[in-house]
Design a protein around this nucleic acid. Structure first.
Lengths: 114, 114
DNA sequence: GTATCATATGAATATATGAACATACAAACA
DNA sequence: TGTTTGTATGTTCATATATTCATATGATAC
């Protein structure tokens, strides 16, 4: 298949291409969105919107194993979506910054709108 | 492993649990985020932020096959992230609503901030 | 020191997913 | 009608990912 329109819209193609972020940035965006793209992690994030929580309570709240929650928290940490503080052997997690909540709000808006 | 803190924080658990969206909504959120969580689809969305584009130009712009772009557009359609209009045999795609751009802006903010 | 509890991590497995190829469909036109 | 062009879709395959189990780490208590 060859697309004749390419030639016709060559200027459009060149112009739009310039406005797309480079591969590195696109990949970072993708990794960030992937961190949101899982029910378990979304439940964790929604729980943390309420208040900071330890791993164990989180596991009980979202009805998942401690191991699973810990793995997912690790992933959320890597994307700077959550932060933590240690108190003895207990680790309390919370949302990293306000962007996280804002993104979740927009997502909820979009769903309710559709 | 049993978590003694569960008993101590039982009220917290009950309270936070109530604030987490139900499984149906969480799944919808997850599906929506999954639609964003891919470099090809992100490039498509970023391209469409500039202007509406036909499938063929989109393929050239993001350097992907027509088949791949069409598959991804199908997925974006299912999540109401893009809409389209037909003009003869050409299909022009554009962003569905302003939520999409807002989400992308928040994502970019978070990345630049980190 | 040992034992216990909270959390983290590594490995294995099952499922999900993106890309590529082939093909089907739909519109325009000879 | 048949042909060409733009788009959509089904299938296959390779890779990615979530969960589970087992184990490791690190802190507290005894």
């Amino acid at each position: 298949m060859k697309c004749e329109l390419v030639i016709i819209h060559q200027e459009t193609v060149d112009q739009v291409r310039l406005a797309i972020p480079d591969a590195t940035k696109i990949d970072k965006m993708s990794e960030l969105m992937k961190a949101f793209a899982d029910p378990t992690r979304l439940k964790i994030l929604q729980a943390l919107r309420q208040q900071e929580l330890c791993v164990c309570d989180l596991a009980v709240i979202i009805e998942a194993t401690q191991s699973s929650v810990s793995h997912q928290l690790s992933r959320l940490r890597k994307q700077h979506l959550v932060k933590y503080r240690k108190d003895g052997k207990i680790v309390y997690y919370s949302l990293d910054d306000e962007h996280v909540s804002e993104i979740l709000d927009r997502v909820l808006e979009h769903i309710d709108h559709a």
